[in-house]
Design a protein around this nucleic acid. Structure first.
Lengths: 223, 223
DNA sequence: GAGTGAAGGTGTCATGCATACACTTATCCA
DNA sequence: TGGATAAGTGTATGCATGACACCTTCACTC
């Protein structure tokens, strides 16, 4: 057991995960419908208590797995803020270390876990009412995501291995929640030298698009 | 008491403060010499346990006050990362919410508090050996400080109400740990429109310098 | 096989911002 | 009055950004 000064706070330590993906062109956030009090029947970010002997990021990955059956690679996870206000949880002093997660393409299907009734994706910019202070957490997560977009190659993490430039632009637009100029976007991204044409093209409706993949040297993930 | 799932971790909740000032042209970090085990006789960041019913930022301000007799305004404090690795504290699972603090001009004198033997300023880029994982915390704090410099008017918080442009440049150089071009610096800062000449000048050795103050509308502090 | 619909792809100009770079001016003091 | 010291000043260049409109390629259908 811990030997601490008598007036020191013993707190419950939790993690929450704001996990994002892009689906049908809109930024979506992963939410679970709580099955237990407090806030039963309310949507919330995946999360829960850190177990004894468990690192913070491990707890975040485990909760994501248990509550939504999503297996995330550690490099797509980043701690971004700790919420510890006194009244934030009716059960007592619970501090939550909030994490940002980026879900690469293909991780969309989710299932509910033991303690949750459902898990599903919601438009991140217009979420339903959320439990605890999770609306605040989600808002901050989106801001952080937008910041990261600027100086990381974050958008690539949302896409499969090969992708077209319009698809990449859609990712940026979904995260920033505004539209971008096609020509300027292409100019900027191609100038960064992080994309290499794969030579292939993708056909659909309209003119086929050139496929790209990330260049050799491009670091990926949130860290 | 907390009613939590049985396997949930009860942890000690602490705060640490990486507090910076500029003195003699170098960025300095505030350290305390620990009087108690663990790590007695070792320098460490000011910090300690959060008390029952105390908010995180209040705890940070209190520890700073108790250990170094420095009274800091809340807006000069910003939470920046939470350190919770399992082995970081030999007493058990202790999670520390680290804060960044900017000490405005004139706050330099410090005294030791009850649980500390000394408190003093050390060059932030070359600190002495530190207790716990505080070297890691300090390093991350400096990086955050440098990031903030870019898009906040953070440097003004290190200076008194009126100051000269060379003084402001010194603050930037101390934080970035490199020298800057005088003409470009002046151009950039004056173009931002955040400075207004006070009309006065300051004499010393060499040509007297124009004194400036922050413009009316300039938001200050870390938030 | 010609026409239409749908999406991909392309170039230029203006503006602002960062960078590199060297000499003059004001004051103090011996 | 001359020397030491620090403040102050301007220009040219390259680069990134933002605004803006038309052409190309393919699939499908008639």
């Amino acid at each position: 057991m811990l030997k601490l000064p008598p007036q020191a706070t013993q707190v419950g330590l939790a993690v929450d995960v704001a996990a994002f993906t892009i689906h049908e062109g809109v930024l979506r956030s992963l939410l679970t419908l709580r099955g237990r009090v407090p806030h039963a029947q309310t949507w919330a970010l995946p999360g829960g208590f850190v177990l004894v002997g468990e690192e913070l990021h491990e707890a975040a990955l485990r909760e994501l797995r248990d509550e939504t059956s999503i297996e995330l690679e550690p490099r797509h996870l980043e701690q971004f803020f700790t919420f510890g206000a006194i009244g934030r949880d009716p059960r007592g002093r619970i501090v939550s270390v909030a994490h940002l997660a980026v879900l690469p393409h293909g991780t969309v299907p989710v299932m509910a876990g033991a303690s949750t009734l459902h898990a599903d994706w919601f438009p991140a910019h217009q979420p339903p009412p959320l439990a605890f202070d999770h609306a605040l957490i989600l808002g901050r997560a989106i801001k952080r995501l937008q910041l990261r977009l600027e100086y990381a190659n974050l958008a690539l993490d949302f896409l499969p291995e090969t992708f077209t430039l319009p698809e990449l632009q859609n990712v940026h637009e979904a995260i920033l929640n505004r539209s971008l100029d096609k020509r300027n976007f292409r100019k900027r991204l191609l100038a960064q030298g992080i994309l290499t044409p794969s030579g292939e093209r993708r056909s659909g409706v309209g003119r086929p698009a050139q496929l790209y993949r990330r260049a050799r040297s491009v670091r990926t993930g949130l860290l």
